[in-house]
Design a protein around this nucleic acid. Structure first.
Length: 426
RNA sequence: GGAGGGGUGGCAGAGCGGUUGAAUGCACUGGUCUUGAAAACCAGCGUACCGAAGGGUACCCAGGGUUCGAAUCCCUGCCCCUCCGCCA
Protein backbone atom coordinates (compact mmCIF):
# COMPACT_ATOMS: atom_id res chain seq x y z
CA UNK A 1 0.00 0.00 0.00
CA UNK A 2 1.18 3.49 -0.78
CA UNK A 3 1.31 6.09 1.97
CA UNK A 4 -2.22 7.52 2.32
CA UNK A 5 -0.63 10.91 2.93
CA UNK A 6 0.96 10.71 -0.48
CA UNK A 7 -2.40 9.86 -2.03
CA UNK A 8 -3.97 12.81 -0.25
CA UNK A 9 -1.36 15.40 -1.08
CA UNK A 10 0.30 14.22 -4.30
CA UNK A 11 -2.47 12.32 -6.03
CA UNK A 12 -1.79 13.76 -9.47
CA UNK A 13 1.92 13.04 -9.27
CA UNK A 14 1.18 9.46 -8.15
CA UNK A 15 -1.25 8.98 -11.02
CA UNK A 16 1.31 10.36 -13.45
CA UNK A 17 4.01 7.99 -12.17
CA UNK A 18 1.71 4.96 -12.34
CA UNK A 19 1.11 5.57 -16.05
CA UNK A 20 4.51 4.01 -16.65
CA UNK A 21 2.91 0.76 -15.43
CA UNK A 22 -0.03 1.33 -17.75
CA UNK A 23 -2.17 1.82 -14.68
CA UNK A 24 -4.80 4.53 -14.98
CA UNK A 25 -5.76 5.87 -11.57
CA UNK A 26 -9.29 7.18 -11.20
CA UNK A 27 -8.18 10.47 -9.74
CA UNK A 28 -11.59 12.13 -9.73
CA UNK A 29 -13.17 9.21 -7.91
CA UNK A 30 -10.49 9.06 -5.25
CA UNK A 31 -10.59 12.81 -4.78
CA UNK A 32 -14.34 12.86 -4.30
CA UNK A 33 -14.14 9.97 -1.84
CA UNK A 34 -11.42 11.76 0.03
CA UNK A 35 -13.22 15.07 0.31
CA UNK A 36 -16.42 13.31 1.36
CA UNK A 37 -14.46 11.41 3.97
CA UNK A 38 -13.03 14.59 5.34
CA UNK A 39 -16.39 16.31 5.62
CA UNK A 40 -18.20 13.34 7.15
CA UNK A 41 -15.38 12.63 9.55
CA UNK A 42 -15.33 16.20 10.81
CA UNK A 43 -19.09 16.24 11.24
CA UNK A 44 -19.11 12.87 13.03
CA UNK A 45 -16.34 13.86 15.36
CA UNK A 46 -18.09 17.09 16.28
CA UNK A 47 -21.18 15.13 17.27
CA UNK A 48 -19.07 12.72 19.27
CA UNK A 49 -17.35 15.57 21.06
CA UNK A 50 -20.71 17.01 22.02
CA UNK A 51 -21.94 13.69 23.29
CA UNK A 52 -18.78 13.04 25.28
CA UNK A 53 -18.87 16.45 26.94
CA UNK A 54 -22.47 15.91 27.93
CA UNK A 55 -21.87 12.48 29.37
CA UNK A 56 -18.89 13.72 31.26
CA UNK A 57 -20.99 16.43 32.84
CA UNK A 58 -23.52 13.87 34.00
CA UNK A 59 -20.74 11.81 35.48
CA UNK A 60 -19.37 14.80 37.38
CA UNK A 61 -22.75 15.79 38.68
CA UNK A 62 -23.45 12.27 39.84
CA UNK A 63 -20.18 11.88 41.68
CA UNK A 64 -20.83 15.25 43.32
CA UNK A 65 -24.06 13.80 44.62
CA UNK A 66 -26.31 16.03 42.56
CA UNK A 67 -29.59 14.99 41.01
CA UNK A 68 -28.87 14.11 37.40
CA UNK A 69 -32.47 13.70 36.34
CA UNK A 70 -32.82 17.28 35.02
CA UNK A 71 -29.73 16.75 32.88
CA UNK A 72 -31.08 13.47 31.53
CA UNK A 73 -34.39 15.12 30.74
CA UNK A 74 -32.60 17.85 28.88
CA UNK A 75 -30.85 15.50 26.46
CA UNK A 76 -32.05 15.69 22.94
CA UNK A 77 -31.92 12.50 20.99
CA UNK A 78 -28.98 12.74 18.67
CA UNK A 79 -28.40 9.00 18.69
CA UNK A 80 -30.00 8.26 15.36
CA UNK A 81 -28.21 11.08 13.64
CA UNK A 82 -24.89 10.04 15.10
CA UNK A 83 -25.39 6.41 14.13
CA UNK A 84 -26.19 7.42 10.58
CA UNK A 85 -23.15 9.65 10.36
CA UNK A 86 -20.91 6.91 11.73
CA UNK A 87 -22.29 4.46 9.24
CA UNK A 88 -21.59 6.83 6.35
CA UNK A 89 -18.06 7.33 7.61
CA UNK A 90 -17.44 3.59 7.87
CA UNK A 91 -18.77 2.98 4.39
CA UNK A 92 -16.65 5.65 2.81
CA UNK A 93 -13.53 4.63 4.67
CA UNK A 94 -14.02 1.07 3.56
CA UNK A 95 -14.36 2.12 -0.03
CA UNK A 96 -11.33 4.37 0.19
CA UNK A 97 -9.34 1.55 1.72
CA UNK A 98 -10.41 -0.77 -1.08
CA UNK A 99 -9.15 1.74 -3.61
CA UNK A 100 -5.83 2.12 -1.80
CA UNK A 101 -5.28 -1.64 -1.57
CA UNK A 102 -5.70 -1.92 -5.33
CA UNK A 103 -3.04 0.66 -6.18
CA UNK A 104 0.32 -0.92 -7.09
CA UNK A 105 3.68 0.29 -5.85
CA UNK A 106 5.41 3.21 -7.53
CA UNK A 107 8.26 2.02 -9.78
CA UNK A 108 11.70 3.20 -8.73
CA UNK A 109 13.34 5.80 -10.97
CA UNK A 110 15.75 3.18 -12.31
CA UNK A 111 12.90 1.06 -13.69
CA UNK A 112 12.86 1.24 -17.49
CA UNK A 113 9.62 2.05 -19.32
CA UNK A 114 7.94 -0.66 -21.34
CA UNK A 115 4.87 -2.85 -21.67
CA UNK A 116 6.08 -6.44 -21.57
CA UNK A 117 9.06 -8.69 -20.96
CA UNK A 118 10.25 -7.72 -24.43
CA UNK A 119 11.11 -4.30 -22.99
CA UNK A 120 13.14 -5.59 -20.05
CA UNK A 121 16.71 -4.33 -20.02
CA UNK A 122 19.68 -6.67 -19.74
CA UNK A 123 22.13 -5.23 -17.21
CA UNK A 124 24.63 -8.04 -16.81
CA UNK A 125 25.65 -11.39 -18.23
CA UNK A 126 27.72 -14.21 -16.70
CA UNK A 127 29.22 -17.30 -18.32
CA UNK A 128 29.19 -18.44 -21.93
CA UNK A 129 26.63 -20.84 -23.27
CA UNK A 130 28.41 -24.08 -24.02
CA UNK A 131 29.16 -25.18 -27.59
CA UNK A 132 27.62 -28.57 -28.20
CA UNK A 133 29.00 -30.94 -30.82
CA UNK A 134 25.58 -32.54 -30.93
CA UNK A 135 22.06 -31.18 -30.82
CA UNK A 136 21.23 -30.64 -27.15
CA UNK A 137 17.97 -32.14 -25.97
CA UNK A 138 15.56 -30.33 -23.74
CA UNK A 139 14.87 -31.59 -20.24
CA UNK A 140 11.69 -33.41 -21.24
CA UNK A 141 13.52 -35.60 -23.74
CA UNK A 142 16.39 -36.11 -21.31
CA UNK A 143 13.99 -37.05 -18.55
CA UNK A 144 12.26 -39.52 -20.82
CA UNK A 145 15.60 -41.02 -21.81
CA UNK A 146 16.40 -41.58 -18.15
CA UNK A 147 12.90 -42.84 -17.50
CA UNK A 148 12.73 -40.65 -14.43
CA UNK A 149 10.60 -37.66 -15.36
CA UNK A 150 7.01 -38.78 -15.79
CA UNK A 151 4.30 -36.35 -16.92
CA UNK A 152 1.77 -39.02 -17.90
CA UNK A 153 1.36 -40.61 -14.51
CA UNK A 154 1.33 -37.24 -12.75
CA UNK A 155 -1.50 -36.20 -15.09
CA UNK A 156 -3.38 -39.30 -14.01
CA UNK A 157 -2.94 -38.36 -10.37
CA UNK A 158 -3.40 -34.62 -10.52
CA UNK A 159 -3.91 -33.31 -14.07
CA UNK A 160 -1.61 -31.18 -16.14
CA UNK A 161 1.26 -29.06 -14.80
CA UNK A 162 2.54 -31.65 -12.36
CA UNK A 163 5.46 -34.05 -12.52
CA UNK A 164 6.72 -37.24 -10.93
CA UNK A 165 10.48 -37.52 -10.58
CA UNK A 166 12.29 -40.80 -9.97
CA UNK A 167 15.63 -42.01 -8.74
CA UNK A 168 18.71 -39.89 -9.39
CA UNK A 169 16.72 -37.01 -10.86
CA UNK A 170 14.49 -36.83 -7.77
CA UNK A 171 17.60 -37.02 -5.67
CA UNK A 172 19.24 -34.25 -7.68
CA UNK A 173 16.35 -31.94 -6.90
CA UNK A 174 16.82 -32.65 -3.19
CA UNK A 175 20.58 -32.20 -3.54
CA UNK A 176 20.10 -28.79 -5.14
CA UNK A 177 17.81 -27.72 -2.33
CA UNK A 178 20.31 -28.73 0.34
CA UNK A 179 23.15 -27.11 -1.56
CA UNK A 180 21.33 -23.79 -1.85
CA UNK A 181 20.30 -23.76 1.81
CA UNK A 182 23.87 -24.52 2.87
CA UNK A 183 25.37 -21.74 0.77
CA UNK A 184 22.93 -19.13 2.00
CA UNK A 185 23.15 -20.08 5.66
CA UNK A 186 26.90 -20.69 5.78
CA UNK A 187 28.22 -18.07 3.36
CA UNK A 188 25.58 -15.35 3.15
CA UNK A 189 24.40 -15.06 6.73
CA UNK A 190 20.79 -16.13 6.32
CA UNK A 191 18.82 -17.88 9.00
CA UNK A 192 16.97 -20.99 7.88
CA UNK A 193 13.26 -21.08 8.67
CA UNK A 194 10.53 -23.65 8.33
CA UNK A 195 7.04 -22.22 7.87
CA UNK A 196 3.41 -23.24 7.32
CA UNK A 197 2.40 -23.99 3.73
CA UNK A 198 -1.17 -22.88 4.39
CA UNK A 199 -1.85 -19.25 5.26
CA UNK A 200 -4.77 -17.00 6.07
CA UNK A 201 -6.10 -14.40 3.65
CA UNK A 202 -4.59 -11.70 5.88
CA UNK A 203 -1.11 -12.94 5.11
CA UNK A 204 -1.71 -12.81 1.36
CA UNK A 205 -3.15 -9.34 1.79
CA UNK A 206 0.03 -8.33 3.59
CA UNK A 207 2.38 -9.27 0.79
CA UNK A 208 0.01 -8.07 -1.93
CA UNK A 209 -1.31 -11.27 -3.57
CA UNK A 210 -4.77 -10.34 -2.31
CA UNK A 211 -7.20 -8.80 -2.96
CA UNK A 212 -6.31 -8.33 -6.63
CA UNK A 213 -4.89 -11.74 -7.53
CA UNK A 214 -7.26 -14.16 -5.85
CA UNK A 215 -7.60 -16.25 -9.01
CA UNK A 216 -3.89 -17.07 -8.95
CA UNK A 217 -4.14 -18.71 -5.53
CA UNK A 218 -5.23 -22.17 -4.49
CA UNK A 219 -7.83 -21.83 -1.76
CA UNK A 220 -8.55 -24.97 0.20
CA UNK A 221 -11.97 -26.25 1.12
CA UNK A 222 -12.86 -26.46 4.78
CA UNK A 223 -14.21 -24.32 7.56
CA UNK A 224 -11.04 -22.28 7.84
CA UNK A 225 -10.27 -19.90 5.00
CA UNK A 226 -6.76 -21.00 4.09
CA UNK A 227 -4.64 -20.75 0.97
CA UNK A 228 -1.70 -22.79 -0.28
CA UNK A 229 1.33 -20.54 -0.40
CA UNK A 230 2.36 -19.35 -3.89
CA UNK A 231 5.85 -18.63 -2.54
CA UNK A 232 7.67 -18.71 0.80
CA UNK A 233 7.72 -14.92 0.57
CA UNK A 234 4.20 -14.93 2.02
CA UNK A 235 4.69 -16.81 5.31
CA UNK A 236 8.25 -15.61 5.84
CA UNK A 237 7.60 -11.89 5.29
CA UNK A 238 4.45 -12.10 7.39
CA UNK A 239 6.53 -13.22 10.36
CA UNK A 240 6.97 -9.48 10.90
CA UNK A 241 3.29 -8.61 10.48
CA UNK A 242 2.03 -6.48 13.39
CA UNK A 243 5.44 -6.63 15.02
CA UNK A 244 7.84 -3.96 16.16
CA UNK A 245 11.38 -5.22 15.70
CA UNK A 246 14.21 -3.81 17.78
CA UNK A 247 16.85 -2.11 15.70
CA UNK A 248 19.70 -4.30 16.90
CA UNK A 249 18.00 -7.34 15.37
CA UNK A 250 18.10 -5.82 11.89
CA UNK A 251 18.64 -6.75 9.19
CA UNK A 252 16.64 -9.96 9.40
CA UNK A 253 17.73 -12.40 6.71
CA UNK A 254 15.73 -15.55 6.23
CA UNK A 255 16.20 -18.41 3.81
CA UNK A 256 13.35 -20.85 3.42
CA UNK A 257 12.68 -23.91 1.30
CA UNK A 258 9.04 -24.63 0.51
CA UNK A 259 6.91 -26.07 -2.20
CA UNK A 260 5.02 -23.34 -4.05
CA UNK A 261 1.50 -23.67 -5.42
CA UNK A 262 0.14 -21.57 -8.25
CA UNK A 263 -3.08 -21.94 -10.14
CA UNK A 264 -1.48 -20.39 -13.24
CA UNK A 265 -4.84 -18.97 -14.22
CA UNK A 266 -4.50 -17.02 -17.42
CA UNK A 267 -1.44 -18.88 -18.62
CA UNK A 268 -3.31 -21.41 -20.73
CA UNK A 269 -1.18 -22.71 -23.55
CA UNK A 270 1.94 -21.08 -22.12
CA UNK A 271 4.92 -23.29 -21.29
CA UNK A 272 2.81 -26.42 -21.40
CA UNK A 273 5.82 -28.63 -22.16
CA UNK A 274 7.89 -29.93 -19.29
CA UNK A 275 8.66 -28.54 -15.87
CA UNK A 276 8.90 -24.84 -16.67
CA UNK A 277 5.48 -23.83 -15.38
CA UNK A 278 3.95 -26.14 -12.80
CA UNK A 279 1.14 -25.93 -10.28
CA UNK A 280 3.58 -27.21 -7.68
CA UNK A 281 7.31 -26.57 -7.54
CA UNK A 282 10.15 -26.32 -5.05
CA UNK A 283 11.84 -23.04 -4.29
CA UNK A 284 14.48 -21.73 -1.94
CA UNK A 285 13.54 -18.17 -1.06
CA UNK A 286 15.60 -15.35 0.38
CA UNK A 287 13.75 -12.74 2.45
CA UNK A 288 15.20 -9.65 4.07
CA UNK A 289 13.65 -7.16 6.47
CA UNK A 290 15.82 -4.08 6.69
CA UNK A 291 16.02 -0.46 7.80
CA UNK A 292 14.73 1.84 5.05
CA UNK A 293 18.13 3.41 4.49
CA UNK A 294 19.63 0.02 3.79
CA UNK A 295 17.16 -1.45 1.34
CA UNK A 296 18.83 -0.61 -1.98
CA UNK A 297 22.14 -1.90 -0.73
CA UNK A 298 20.33 -5.02 0.52
CA UNK A 299 18.67 -5.44 -2.86
CA UNK A 300 22.01 -5.49 -4.62
CA UNK A 301 23.41 -7.95 -2.09
CA UNK A 302 20.41 -10.25 -2.19
CA UNK A 303 20.55 -10.41 -5.98
CA UNK A 304 24.24 -11.22 -5.67
CA UNK A 305 23.47 -14.04 -3.24
CA UNK A 306 21.16 -15.64 -5.77
CA UNK A 307 23.75 -15.18 -8.51
CA UNK A 308 26.35 -17.03 -6.44
CA UNK A 309 24.29 -20.21 -6.72
CA UNK A 310 24.27 -20.04 -10.51
CA UNK A 311 27.98 -19.28 -10.55
CA UNK A 312 28.87 -22.16 -8.25
CA UNK A 313 26.80 -24.45 -10.47
CA UNK A 314 28.49 -23.03 -13.56
CA UNK A 315 25.21 -22.10 -15.21
CA UNK A 316 25.34 -19.17 -17.67
CA UNK A 317 22.82 -16.46 -16.93
CA UNK A 318 21.93 -12.85 -17.47
CA UNK A 319 20.49 -10.19 -15.18
CA UNK A 320 17.47 -8.30 -16.41
CA UNK A 321 15.94 -5.10 -15.04
CA UNK A 322 12.19 -5.55 -15.35
CA UNK A 323 10.40 -2.78 -17.19
CA UNK A 324 7.47 -1.02 -15.55
CA UNK A 325 4.87 -3.01 -17.45
CA UNK A 326 6.38 -6.33 -16.34
CA UNK A 327 6.89 -5.31 -12.72
CA UNK A 328 4.91 -7.15 -10.04
CA UNK A 329 2.13 -5.37 -8.15
CA UNK A 330 4.03 -4.78 -4.90
CA UNK A 331 7.55 -4.28 -6.21
CA UNK A 332 9.35 -0.95 -6.62
CA UNK A 333 12.07 -2.67 -8.60
CA UNK A 334 12.84 -6.22 -9.71
CA UNK A 335 15.95 -7.80 -11.12
CA UNK A 336 15.35 -11.16 -12.76
CA UNK A 337 18.05 -13.76 -13.18
CA UNK A 338 17.58 -15.72 -16.39
CA UNK A 339 19.44 -18.98 -16.88
CA UNK A 340 20.55 -20.29 -20.25
CA UNK A 341 18.56 -23.31 -21.45
CA UNK A 342 20.28 -25.01 -24.40
CA UNK A 343 17.22 -27.13 -25.12
CA UNK A 344 15.21 -23.98 -25.77
CA UNK A 345 18.14 -21.87 -26.96
CA UNK A 346 16.99 -19.08 -24.70
CA UNK A 347 17.36 -17.48 -21.27
CA UNK A 348 14.54 -18.28 -18.85
CA UNK A 349 13.69 -16.71 -15.50
CA UNK A 350 15.09 -18.65 -12.55
CA UNK A 351 15.04 -15.95 -9.88
CA UNK A 352 13.22 -12.72 -9.26
CA UNK A 353 14.78 -10.30 -6.76
CA UNK A 354 12.62 -7.40 -5.62
CA UNK A 355 12.68 -4.43 -3.32
CA UNK A 356 9.21 -3.55 -2.05
CA UNK A 357 10.32 -0.57 0.05
CA UNK A 358 7.58 0.03 2.67
CA UNK A 359 4.73 -1.12 0.40
CA UNK A 360 4.28 -4.57 1.97
CA UNK A 361 5.32 -3.36 5.41
CA UNK A 362 2.52 -0.79 5.44
CA UNK A 363 -0.07 -3.42 4.56
CA UNK A 364 1.29 -5.69 7.29
CA UNK A 365 2.20 -3.01 9.82
CA UNK A 366 5.67 -4.52 10.02
CA UNK A 367 7.78 -2.02 11.90
CA UNK A 368 11.08 -1.42 13.63
CA UNK A 369 11.98 0.95 16.42
CA UNK A 370 14.19 3.73 15.15
CA UNK A 371 16.64 4.52 17.94
CA UNK A 372 17.20 8.00 16.53
CA UNK A 373 13.54 8.96 16.92
CA UNK A 374 12.44 6.35 19.45
CA UNK A 375 9.40 5.76 17.26
CA UNK A 376 8.18 2.67 15.45
CA UNK A 377 8.61 3.09 11.70
CA UNK A 378 7.85 0.89 8.72
CA UNK A 379 10.44 -1.63 7.64
CA UNK A 380 11.51 -2.25 4.08
CA UNK A 381 10.97 -5.76 2.74
CA UNK A 382 12.80 -7.62 0.00
CA UNK A 383 12.89 -11.09 -1.41
CA UNK A 384 14.31 -13.16 -4.20
CA UNK A 385 14.46 -16.75 -5.31
CA UNK A 386 17.70 -18.34 -4.37
CA UNK A 387 16.75 -20.24 -6.58
CA UNK A 388 13.70 -21.85 -8.12
CA UNK A 389 14.77 -25.47 -7.62
CA UNK A 390 12.75 -27.10 -10.38
CA UNK A 391 14.08 -24.73 -13.00
CA UNK A 392 17.61 -25.16 -11.67
CA UNK A 393 17.19 -28.91 -12.12
CA UNK A 394 16.13 -28.35 -15.72
CA UNK A 395 19.05 -26.03 -16.35
CA UNK A 396 21.53 -28.55 -14.95
CA UNK A 397 20.18 -31.38 -17.06
CA UNK A 398 20.21 -29.34 -20.24
CA UNK A 399 23.54 -27.59 -19.73
CA UNK A 400 25.48 -30.62 -18.50
CA UNK A 401 24.07 -33.27 -20.82
CA UNK A 402 26.35 -35.44 -22.89
CA UNK A 403 25.71 -36.93 -26.29
CA UNK A 404 24.29 -40.14 -24.88
CA UNK A 405 21.96 -38.27 -22.57
CA UNK A 406 23.91 -38.85 -19.38
CA UNK A 407 24.52 -35.79 -17.20
CA UNK A 408 27.84 -34.72 -15.73
CA UNK A 409 27.32 -33.02 -12.39
CA UNK A 410 29.26 -29.95 -11.25
CA UNK A 411 31.77 -30.60 -8.48
CA UNK A 412 29.87 -28.73 -5.78
CA UNK A 413 26.99 -31.19 -5.99
CA UNK A 414 29.01 -34.40 -5.67
CA UNK A 415 28.89 -34.47 -1.86
CA UNK A 416 25.14 -34.04 -2.00
CA UNK A 417 24.87 -36.97 -4.44
CA UNK A 418 26.83 -39.44 -2.31
CA UNK A 419 29.87 -38.81 -4.45
CA UNK A 420 28.19 -39.52 -7.77
CA UNK A 421 29.58 -37.29 -10.52
CA UNK A 422 27.45 -38.53 -13.38
CA UNK A 423 23.83 -39.45 -13.79
CA UNK A 424 23.87 -42.27 -16.26
CA UNK A 425 21.09 -43.26 -18.58
CA UNK A 426 19.25 -46.40 -17.55
C1' G B 1 -13.75 -34.34 20.19
C1' G B 2 -14.89 -33.08 25.88
C1' A B 3 -14.04 -29.52 30.25
C1' G B 4 -12.19 -25.09 31.97
C1' G B 5 -9.11 -20.17 31.86
C1' G B 6 -7.64 -16.01 29.12
C1' G B 7 -6.82 -11.85 25.26
C1' U B 8 -5.23 -4.22 28.34
C1' G B 9 0.53 0.30 26.18
C1' G B 10 7.65 -2.15 23.84
C1' C B 11 7.20 -6.07 27.95
C1' A B 12 4.90 -7.58 32.69
C1' G B 13 0.51 -6.43 35.07
C1' A B 14 -3.86 -3.38 37.78
C1' G B 15 -8.38 -1.54 36.49
C1' C B 16 -16.53 -0.22 41.69
C1' G B 17 -20.43 1.40 34.03
C1' G B 18 -18.81 7.93 35.03
C1' U B 19 -13.17 14.02 35.85
C1' U B 20 -9.28 6.44 32.74
C1' G B 21 -5.71 6.93 27.25
C1' A B 22 -5.77 3.87 31.15
C1' A B 23 -2.45 2.56 38.15
C1' U B 24 2.23 0.16 39.15
C1' G B 25 6.84 -2.18 37.78
C1' C B 26 10.50 -3.06 33.89
C1' A B 27 12.60 -1.08 29.50
C1' C B 28 13.64 3.56 27.02
C1' U B 29 14.94 9.22 26.85
C1' G B 30 16.59 13.71 29.41
C1' G B 31 18.32 15.87 34.02
C1' U B 32 20.59 16.04 39.24
C1' C B 33 24.62 13.71 41.79
C1' U B 34 29.75 11.47 40.22
C1' U B 35 36.57 12.09 37.72
C1' G B 36 33.56 8.43 34.78
C1' A B 37 30.04 4.59 35.38
C1' A B 38 26.56 2.07 38.53
C1' A B 39 22.99 3.14 42.24
C1' A B 40 19.62 6.77 43.96
C1' C B 41 16.45 10.82 42.94
C1' C B 42 13.53 14.14 39.45
C1' A B 43 11.08 14.57 34.80
C1' G B 44 9.42 12.63 30.21
C1' C B 45 7.78 8.50 27.37
C1' G B 46 1.51 4.73 22.90
C1' U B 47 -0.63 4.82 17.77
C1' A B 48 -3.65 6.96 14.03
C1' C B 49 -6.82 10.74 12.09
C1' C B 50 -8.95 16.07 11.84
C1' G B 51 -7.27 21.24 12.71
C1' A B 52 -3.11 27.11 11.27
C1' A B 53 -3.38 26.69 16.51
C1' G B 54 -5.79 26.13 21.22
C1' G B 55 -7.82 21.70 20.79
C1' G B 56 -10.84 17.50 19.09
C1' U B 57 -11.83 12.19 17.68
C1' A B 58 -10.79 7.00 17.62
C1' C B 59 -8.17 2.75 19.46
C1' C B 60 -7.80 -1.78 26.05
C1' C B 61 -8.32 -9.02 20.11
C1' A B 62 -12.47 -8.16 16.16
C1' G B 63 -17.71 -7.18 15.08
C1' G B 64 -22.49 -6.21 17.03
C1' G B 65 -25.76 -4.79 21.37
C1' U B 66 -27.41 -2.31 26.19
C1' U B 67 -26.68 2.92 28.15
C1' C B 68 -26.84 9.92 28.56
C1' G B 69 -21.94 7.41 29.08
C1' A B 70 -18.46 0.86 28.00
C1' A B 71 -11.55 -1.39 28.87
C1' U B 72 -15.52 -2.49 32.53
C1' C B 73 -22.25 -5.43 31.24
C1' C B 74 -24.55 -8.83 27.10
C1' C B 75 -24.09 -11.61 22.26
C1' U B 76 -21.11 -13.51 18.12
C1' G B 77 -16.45 -14.53 15.93
C1' C B 78 -11.10 -15.10 15.99
C1' C B 79 -6.79 -16.33 18.66
C1' C B 80 -4.01 -18.27 22.90
C1' C B 81 -3.36 -21.38 27.35
C1' U B 82 -4.40 -25.70 30.81
C1' C B 83 -6.48 -30.63 31.63
C1' C B 84 -8.78 -35.21 29.41
C1' G B 85 -9.46 -38.19 24.94
C1' C B 86 -7.58 -39.42 20.00
C1' C B 87 -3.43 -39.36 16.80
C1' A B 88 1.55 -38.96 12.64
Amino acid sequence: MLDPKLIRTELNAVAERLKIRNVELNVAHIQSLESARKEIQTRTEEMLAKRNARSKMIGKAKSAGQDIQPLLDDIDDMGAQLAQSKQQLDAIQEELNKELLAIPNLPHESVPPGDSDADNVEVDRWGDPRDFDFVPKDHVDLGALHGSMDFETSAKLSGSRFVILHGQIARLQRALTQFMLDVHTREHGYQEVYVPYLVKAESLLGTGQLPKFAEDQFKIAGENELYLIPTAEVPVTNIARDEIIEEDRLPLRYVCHTPCFRSEAGSYGKDTRGMIRQHQFEKVELVQLVRPDDSWQAHAELTGHAEVILQKLGLPYRVVNLCAGDLGFSAAKTLDLEVWLPGQQTYREISSCSNYLDFQARRMQARWRNSATGKPELLHTLNGSGLAVGRTLIALLENYQMADGSVRLPQVLHPYMHGDSIINVG
